[in-house]
Amino acid sequence: MAIKDYLRERFFPHMWCPGCGHGIVLNNMLRSIEQLGLSKNEIVMVSGIGCSSRISGYVDFHTLHTIHGRALAFATGVKLGLPELNVIVPMGDGDALAIGGNHFIHAARRNIDITAIVMNNRIYGMTGGQFSPLSGIGTMATTAPFRNIDHDFDVAELSKAAGATFVARTTTFHAKQITDIIKQAILHEGFSVVEILTQCPTYFGRKNREGSASNMMELYKKNTTPIGSQAKQENPELIERGILHEVEAPEYCNEYDKIIKAAMKGK
């Protein structure tokens, strides 16, 4: 497998549970990188804490496994430090949007050229199944034993409102689309958000009676639709997949380079 060249094979089999969607994200993210022909030395992967963040340990790039919620802030330092690097930041839903929510919106607002991947399994897996800001009303979790009364929010809408210039969504069922979208997200100059619905059969699936990993992926097939489809008009409950938002806007590091030019001239 060509993508094995990007793996730190000595740490396999990985630590994720059987059927965990995070492995599918890893699998297809590496295919994107391989298809883009990027060199391992030009990629920095920065992650935070949680099941998702362990992804950085498995890839043979420059890898920075940081603290909970702050991956994007570390990544901002890396990117501004050396803008020629490709900076990819995989995060869990809690990591990115609960403890890391502030960094998330501000990285989006700056439109710094970072690829943020939100691996959304709607649960805190590493700590054993607590509800996250994306679990949504009515779900069950160890910290919502009766039912969850916390509202969720739409990552894509939030990202757009905060200033992200590339926003896309797909699921682990749609593996080829993961590869395709991450490729475009990496190529996009600016802050890119890719939300990937990824199953946690161990906690979310079990607590919410969604069955096996395969069954949870069947639900992704059933409950999502390509953006702009007829199906969405007939059933507004469907979650849209694809590139939801893409605009061009000044990128932070480029803008800072202009500041440096002006400042050095003025001196």
Binding site: M1, I24, N27, R31, T172, F173
Partner: peptide
């Protein structure tokens, strides 16, 4: 190749 792409363990080719 759907098995290969959807394998969370990168175990099938």
């Amino acid at each position: 190749k759907l098995c290969e792409l959807r394998c969370p363990d990168l175990a099938i080719e």
